[in-house]
Computed example of a mutant assay.
Amino acid sequence: MRKLLYIFLGLVLAVGLKAQDQAQYNHYIGNQGILNPAYNGTRDVISGLIIHRSQWLGMQDAPMNQAINVHGPIEDTNLGVGVVLENDRLGFSNNFNFMGAGSYKLKMGRNQFLSLGLQVGVTSSVYDGTKAITDIYGDPMFTRKESILGFNFGIGAYYYADGYFGGFSIPRFFRPTFDEAQDNEGSFKNTVSLESLHSYWYGGYIFDWGEVKVKPTALIRTVVGAPLTFDLSCNVLLNERLWLGASYRSISEVVFLTEYIINRQWTVRYSFDYSLSKIGTFGQYGSHEIGLQFDFSFNKRAGMRSIRYF
């Protein structure tokens, strides 16, 4: 079984499993600064986020990723800036992204804004196929160690008002691909391929239902040549402190979401997702994601000047 698992993970890298070529997050609305460069600077404070995600616990060498995002507005301008650091381990591959983001905010109406964003940086990819246990002898994918450092960039747009929001992004245009040469050697190259571009479309709104607030959201991932995937989520805010919710991911996963607002400066998030497909028999302990967000201001009153639910 272990041998089959290594072969499976190796093939995931060999064919570039498009459904998860980029890291996925359960709290995608809380992690918008990582997902979309246009979100950076749209809050009225300096905001930061730290995330750790362990996927398919119980499976050896299962995917794991961490991310840090810090961003804020430039006072007395329509500009925002941010930085994103993201580390993603998948099988025999480890990808690290360092991106600097900038955004420009346009006022579209009363309390309605459109932000356009661009991020630029580098991607470091390390691949070690020698860890594979396989009967595919002589395959260059399983007989080499490779590392590559290359330029990357992404774009995004974000529209928001008091009670609703929507966004679109292509976080990264470049990705490492394996180019097999005629001599059966080949190498990894940092290239742009329209068939590999990941685009994200998402949105949601907030409304009052009795004494609680309800926040339904949706996210769609598209990759040319791969099936469309989506997340449908709904969260409820209790006592202005505790968010509880659930989500369904179209690759047959259910997600349970929690978020606790400690105060205007600190918010902690945790989620658990479990695969309903056969892969759940390997990652039998599910996937776990934890995040910590902070919001600070240089004004006399620290923290958010107005409550933001997205």
Rank of each mutant, 00 (worst) to 15 (best):
6 Y>H: 04
11 L>Y: 10
29 I>R: 00
31 N>D: 06
50 I>D: 00
57 L>A: 07
59 M>W: 10
80 G>H: 10
80 G>C: 07
90 L>P: 05
96 F>M: 13
97 N>Y: 05
105 K>L: 14
106 L>F: 15
109 G>E: 11
114 L>I: 08
117 G>Q: 12
117 G>A: 11
117 G>M: 13
119 Q>R: 03
129 G>F: 13
129 G>M: 13
130 T>P: 13
130 T>Q: 11
133 I>Y: 11
140 P>L: 13
146 E>Y: 14
147 S>L: 04
149 L>Y: 02
150 G>A: 08
165 F>D: 03
167 G>I: 05
172 R>E: 13
172 R>Y: 14
174 F>Q: 06
180 E>M: 14
190 N>K: 02
193 S>Y: 10
204 G>F: 11
209 W>Q: 12
216 P>I: 05
218 A>E: 11
220 I>F: 14
221 R>F: 11
221 R>W: 10
224 V>K: 05
225 G>A: 06
235 N>S: 12
241 R>I: 07
242 L>R: 00
251 I>L: 09
258 T>S: 13
260 Y>I: 06
269 R>K: 12
270 Y>C: 10
279 I>A: 04
287 S>C: 11
289 E>V: 13
289 E>N: 06
290 I>W: 07
301 R>M: 15
306 S>Q: 07
307 I>T: 05
307 I>L: 14
